[in-house]
Design a protein around this nucleic acid. Structure first.
Lengths: 188, 188
DNA sequence: AAAGTTGTGTGATATAGATCACATTCGGAA
DNA sequence: TTCCGAATGTGATCTATATCACACAACTTT
C-alpha cells in the first residue's frame, strides 16, 4: 500500500473527508526516508513538524543527568511522533527522536496542521480524537507505573504490542519500562 | 464571579464564541455541589459526565492490589476532571474521583460535549487544545518520574502549584508523587 | 473540655531494583 | 571465514525507598 493510501485509511477511521478534501490536505505532507540510527529531532533544537510513520520504527526518548535513557514512545507504522511539548508551545525540544530501523514517514508542519484544522472541521475532529487517545494512553501508562510491578508491566506491554518482542532489542524495552536491562533480563 | 462567568472566561482563552453560542452551550451544563469527602466517580461504575471545577478541589485516584493509593490528578478551580478512559470509551471506571474540600462544579455529559463539538467548530477547537495540553502535561509528568528523584519532583510540584502546599495534606501529595508519606516527610 | 480521628515526624529494618563485573552469543562487515 | 561490536545472561554487591512501629500534634465532633 502506498503511503498516501495508508494515511487516507488512517484518517477515515475518525473523520469523514471527501476525496478532494483529502487530496488538498495530503498536498501539505512531505515524504521522508531515514536510515536506521538517523536522528530526526535533537534535544535543544526547534521543532516544526510532526511525523506519521509509514514503515519502520521510531523512538522518542530523553537522557537524564545520569545519562540514563528513558523511552517516552515507540512509533510503529500509523503512529504519530514528535516532541509535542516543543511543537505545540514553539519551544526547544526536550526530547530526541531517532530511527530504530530504516523508516519512511509523512511529515507535516505545525502551522499547516493548524491551518488545515481551521479550514476543515472534520480534520479538527480527527486531531481532537487522536490526542484524546494519546492522553488516555499516557494516563494509563502512568497508572501502570505506579500500580504494577515490572513483570506485570512487561507482560502488559508484550500483550499490547507483540511485534515489539522481535523488532526491538531488550535494552530499549527496558528503557521504555523504566528498569535496567539486567532486571528485565532476570524477570523469568 | 459566578460559575457562568468562570466558564466563559475559561473558554475565551482558546475559542471565539458569540454570546448566543455561549448561552446555548452553557444550557448543557448543570451545576452541582459536593461536601468534602463525597465521592463523584467510583471504580466499576459507568461514567457519563466530565466536571469543570468552579470552587474547591477534587482528586482522581486509583487503589492498587496492595491498597496503595496513587493520585492521577488534583483538580483545582478551572480544571476539568473525569475518568477520561471510561468516559471516551464508554467503559466502566477504573479510577475514583472524590472531593478534597467542599466543591462546586459544572457538569456536562459526554454525549452533549460531542454534540456541541459537532455543532460548533470553535468548541471542537477548544477541546482539542484542552486535551493537547493535558497530553503534554501527562508526558512531562511521566518524564519527570523517570528522570528526576523525589526531592526534585516535590520542588517542581510546589513551584508549579504553590497553593497545594497549604490546601492538600502531605499524605496526598506523597500519593501524587508516588512515594510513601514517610519518605516525603524525610526529604529536606 | 474530652475523646476520637486525621495528619505528621522519625527510628529501625526489609527489599526491590540498580550497579558493577564478567561471560557468552549473535549478526554484520571486512 | 574471521573479527568486532552489539545484545544478552547472571552472579555479587549496594542503595534508595518501603514498611513497620511508635509518639505526638492538630483538627473535629459531641
Amino acid at each position: 500500500m502506498e503511503s498516501k493510501e495508508v494515511l487516507k485509511a488512517h484518517l477515515a477511521k475518525l473523520a469523514v473527508l471527501t476525496d478532494e478534501q483529502f487530496e488538498y490536505l495530503f498536498s501539505h505532507f512531505t515524504k521522508q526516508t531515514f536510515k536506521k540510527g538517523q536522528v530526526i529531532i535533537t534535544e535543544g533544537d526547534m521543532v516544526n513538524c510532526e511525523y506519521f510513520v509509514i514503515r519502520g520504527c521510531l523512538k522518542s526518548f530523553s537522557i537524564n543527568d545520569d545519562l540514563k535513557m528513558f523511552i517516552l514512545q515507540f512509533a510503529m507504522p500509523t503512529w504519530w511522533a514528535s516532541d509535542y511539548n516543543a511543537l505545540y508551545n514553539q519551544t526547544k525540544a526536550t526530547i530526541n527522536v531517532d530511527c530504530i530501523s530504516d523508516t519512511e514517514v509523512l511529515c507535516i508542519t505545525n502551522a499547516d496542521r493548524e491551518k488545515l484544522c481551521n479550514e476543515l472541521h472534520q480534520l479538527e475532529h480527527f486531531f481532537r480524537w487522536r490526542t484524546n487517545r494519546g492522553y488516555v494512553a499516557t494516563q494509563k501508562r502512568l497508572l501502570s507505573f505506579m500500580n504494577n510491578n515490572i513483570k506485570h508491566r512487561y507482560e502488559e506491554l508484550l500483550k499490547s504490542y507483540p511485534e515489539l518482542y522481535n523488532t526491538v532489542p531488550k535494552n530499549l524495552i527496558a528503557a521504555y519500562l523504566g528498569v535496567s536491562r539486567e532486571t528485565l533480563s532476570r524477570l523469568s
